[in-house]
């Protein structure tokens, strides 16, 4: 480690993710607006917001899929723009639009991803086998991913995000479409990971899950950060749902239907 790196590591020992004025525009639309975010290391972070708030865009910028229009992001003390490869090596990602090579079988895909992340050769097989068993995907080893069900695809993407033992895990709606049994196992697995020091950055619209799992939350609306901090601080004694609705706004005319439905 160079002195520089030691310094950086020491300075950011407690921060997994830090953004400064992170902004992304799509034409005239500001999808993410000057986002300043700090995610402590080893925390289970819930990133919440209504549809179109800019959650997935933020994750895409933090994982190198999208370039920020302005601002910067640091992960584990490393600047994402300056050291993309080093940062990416320590990340695991389940993007919103699962990035899957669906003409491979599950085991082939896991082996492929493992090699891309430089997992030692002799470990690839064991890790893949264990992950497939955990996700209950080991029943049809020759099935192409394109023939998987929606939830199975989510699970294989999650397995692929874990295979290289990432230090920071980005999960965009990981529970959407997952059955109750698997969902339970995945939640347990996530808690284990966090206990071992992995940082998880999670978006979900199921506030009960977030409330039960996460230690910290941030809420974003129309690209702007509206609240951020430890779970108890955000809840202020009440439930997360109430706090969320208070912060992002409630439906204006509750019960208004479609005029032509009669």
């Amino acid at each position: 480690m160079t002195p520089d790196e030691t310094h950086a590591a020491a300075g950011d020992a407690v921060r997994a993710i830090r953004t400064e004025g992170l902004t992304r525009r799509f034409g005239d639309l500001v999808a993410v607006d000057r986002l300043d975010l700090e995610v402590p290391r080893g925390c289970f972070f819930g990133f919440l917001g209504p549809n179109g708030a800019g959650k997935s865009t933020t994750i895409a910028m933090l994982t190198g899929l999208l370039r920020p229009s302005a601002g910067r992001a640091e992960i584990l003390g490393r600047d994402l723009a300056r050291e993309p490869l080093a940062v990416k090596r320590s990340l695991g990602v389940v993007p919103e639009q699962l990035a899957l090579f669906d003409r491979l079988t599950g085991p082939e895909y896991l082996a492929f991803v493992a090699r891309m992340y430089g997992v030692p050769r002799r470990e690839v097989r064991t890790r893949a086998a264990e992950l497939l068993a955990l996700m209950d995907l080991d029943g049809a080893p020759r099935k192409l991913i394109v023939d998987y069900s929606h939830g199975m695809k989510k699970k294989i993407a999650l397995a692929a995000a874990l295979i290289h033992r990432p230090e920071v895990l980005f999960l965009d709606e990981p529970f959407e479409g997952i059955d109750a049994v698997a969902s339970r196992e995945i939640k347990d697995l996530m808690l284990q990971l966090v206990a071992r020091g992995v940082t998880i950055f999670l978006t979900s619209h199921v506030l009960e899950i977030v409330e039960r799992l996460c230690t910290d939350v941030a809420i974003i609306a129309r690209g702007r950060l509206v609240a951020s901090g430890p779970m108890d601080e955000i809840r202020r004694g009440g439930g997360l749902e109430e706090a969320f609705l208070d912060l992002v706004g409630r439906p204006e005319t509750p019960g208004a239907g479609l005029s032509w439905l009669g």
């Binding site: 994982t63 190198g64 899929l65 993309p84 490869l85 080093a86 990416k88 090596r89 990340l91 990602v93 993007p95 639009q97 699962l98 990035a99 899957l100 090579f101 669906d102 003409r103 991803v113 891309m116 992340y117 430089g118």
Partner: peptide
């Protein structure tokens, strides 16, 4: 062209 959504992985993974 044939990678479709999977192509994102080329950017997510630490490869040149």
């Amino acid at each position: 062209g044939w990678d479709a959504g999977g192509a994102a992985l080329w950017r997510l993974a630490p490869v040149s």
